[in-house]
Every structure is written in structure tokens, then in C-alpha cells.
Design a protein around this nucleic acid. Sequence first.
DNA 1: CTGAACAGGTGACCATAGTCACCGCATTTC
DNA 2: GAAATGCGGTGACTATGGTCACCTGTTCAG
Lengths: 209, 209
Amino acid sequence: MPFEIAEIKSYLPAFGNELLAEIAAAGSIMEVPEGKEILREGQYIKTVPIVLLGLVKVFTRTEEKELLLYYIGSAQSCIMSFSAGLTNSPSRIFAITEEPTTLLLLPAAKLNKWIKQYPALNELFYQQYNLRYTEMLNTINSLLFERMDHRLHNYPQEKSKLKGEKILNLRHKEIAAELGTAREVITRVLKKLEQEGKIRHRPGGIEII
Amino acid sequence: MPFEIAEIKSYLPAFGNELLAEIAAAGSIMEVPEGKEILREGQYIKTVPIVLLGLVKVFTRTEEKELLLYYIGSAQSCIMSFSAGLTNSPSRIFAITEEPTTLLLLPAAKLNKWIKQYPALNELFYQQYNLRYTEMLNTINSLLFERMDHRLHNYPQEKSKLKGEKILNLRHKEIAAELGTAREVITRVLKKLEQEGKIRHRPGGIEII
DNA sequence: CTGAACAGGTGACCATAGTCACCGCATTTC
DNA sequence: GAAATGCGGTGACTATGGTCACCTGTTCAG
């Protein structure tokens, strides 16, 4: 898909003109609808995506269970693709769009050269590694130190911030997947949280108090 | 502590002479005995360590519980210090030497300049981020998908590889801390594993079968 | 209009692992 | 030699959350 350099620059203002010209020549833009899997386990990476607009969620999973690792928002990138692309190894996670998303795709083959040449790009990936490292640490801590009710109480607050909505319309099944547990557990704990007055059921979803 | 450029080069052969000269001028070497805490939560970082020789383990913890995240071995670095040093934010983890360890300390203030200037250093940190990302993902997966007996069976195998010893002499309490559980649980599960013939008690420690 | 599919609610049960309260044994310290 | 300390072992109990079976209500396609 052809695109304007100016458009990319509006999302990634730190990128210099020379880098943008290279990206325009070798990269591409992809529009992805909501709920589409854009990366799966075992997949080898040819292009590394940067999210320009939208929201992508990143999961780890086995046959029976899955767990949300983090969200990739606007002007953020996918470290797993980057790392898998550079080292030519398969992905260990899967990623799915949570909103309609516009991706900027960078060819993995050029990245090694680009990150050496353009500090702005280098910095972006360092920032992303930092961010994901922190988020994974948070995930580990919450898995290890917190009980379900606590995790379930924090979860919609995070999500609410991320999506800018006060009332969240979520399937119990989806929450269960993101927290790595079962649907019945969510129903049960949600009821308990409502009794404790921490959450309220509303037409259209759940409100956090 | 003064030191020889040649000595550092023997541990980090990818580093060029110019970088080594800068490190010799601004960095320092520190010898740390076994069992010493070298980084704690909340601490701000002035120097980023690279392990030349020895073994450092990195933990997350609360008052009641802790969990091993990963080991930092020879020619590896501590991403948490690096990230905390660059962004001037406090450490979220703590690190302790498991063996007598020689550290090369790089001043955080110079790092930002150095990583732009010396691709070898830049590459080292990318590699480390990749490595830790993978290890944290493994940790998450094992916390989420595996039961204690499985985790406790894998654990000494990893450790055995890392330390090059076939028979491991470990306190149950130490194993418990690394796996984020209680001492009694380790005793119990270890007994079960021995009954299943997966492990054997030996004078001097535990042998994995 | 009807039936399938899906969301969610619920009770009963169970397995895992965390907790508590002890013991015995060996080693170190005074 | 006595006391203190640390390690490991153990039985009993409990809490958390995962599983199963089943039910109700809603929506939507045919």
C-alpha cells in the first residue's frame, strides 16, 4: 500500500527525513480489522510492525490456557517480532488486534542496518524493550503475589485507561483468557467484587468504582 | 581498581580498542564475594555492571515471597541496571552474587553516548534484552502452565547446566525462594520426585536422573 | 417462529499448594 | 557439656481456584 511520508511522521515525529525516505521505499502500510491474529507462535518474521493507530494485544498460550502479556498501542512496536526478525527465530507469542489497526511494516532484513544508522529507530526499540521488560515484570509479580480478586479488580482499571472508556463491555470469557483463568472464576469473583462495592454492573458493561 | 585493557578484552572480544580505552578511563572493576547483594529494589543506578566472571542471580520479591527471574553469567549484563540507569528510574528487582564475581562497572552517564558510538556495545545490550525477554517469558509460562513438581524437576537441571555440577548441594529454603514457594512444599515435592525415581539423594546433595 | 449458539449464573466437588505446629538431628557457640 | 541455631521431615488443616454439570435468558439465522 502506498503512503505519505508526512503521515508516518505525524505518528513518529522523532524519525528523521532520511529514515522516513528509506521506510517509504522499503516498508509498507497495512490496515487490519479488529479481532484479527497478526502473529502466531512458531511463525518466522519477515516484517516488523509498528502500530501507527489502533491497539494490538499480545498473548502467551498453550492448548488449554492463555495469558495477556501487554498491549501495543500507537507509536509502539512489537519486541517479539523485532527480536525474532533480527535473530531469525520463531515467535513465542501470538498477537491479535483489539481495535481496527494501522500497521507500518518494516522489512526485518533492513533493520539491522537501520538501527545502526538511525539513532531515533534505535531509541524506539530500546524504549520498547524497556517498556515490555517492565510490563512482563508486572505480569510476573501479579501472577505470583496477587490473588484473583485483586488482579480482576486492577485489570479493568488498566483497560479503562487504555481505551478511554469508563464503562467496559467485556465478555467474561475474554477476561478469563487475559488473566489466564476460567470463565466461571471470573463470574464468581466479579460477583464478589460487586458485593464488596468495588464494581457495578451497568447496561452496556461494567463500571469500576 | 586499576585494570588491564587486555583482561577486559579477553572476556568481551567483540569490543573494539577505542571502546576499551574509554571503558578503562571511565569504568572500574569490582570483586564481589559470594552471597552479597549488589542491587536492591528502589535503588537508583550510577554504574551499570557487566559480569566478567562469576554468577549473579536476579530476583523479584515482596515481604513474604520472592522469585528467581534469571541468572547473569559471564560476559552478560544486567538489563534492569541498564534501563534504570538510562531512564534514571529506580530498580524493581534485587540481585545477589551466587559465586565470587568480577564486575566491570560502566558509568550510567556515559552509556547513552557509548551505545550510539560503539555498535558492539549496542549489540550487547540488544542481546541481553532479547535474552531476558525470553527468560521472563519462560518464567511466566512456567508459573502459569506448570505445577510445582514439574517446575521443581526442571529447576535443578537448569541449575546443573549453569554451574557445571552433577550433584547439587542446595538448601530447601533456597530452592523455595527461587521458585517462589515455601520450604515445606519443596521438602514434600522433592520426596515425591525421589519416590518417582526422578531424583536421588546423595551425600553432598541432590542428583538428577 | 424455532432452534442453535452464546453469555452468564450457580452449586458441588476436588486438587494444589500454602500454612501451622511440631519433631528430630546435626552443628556451632558459649 | 549445654544451649542455641539451622535444616529437614511430617501430619493436619485450609484456601484458592480449577472443573463439571447444568440451567436460564438473549440473540440471530434460517
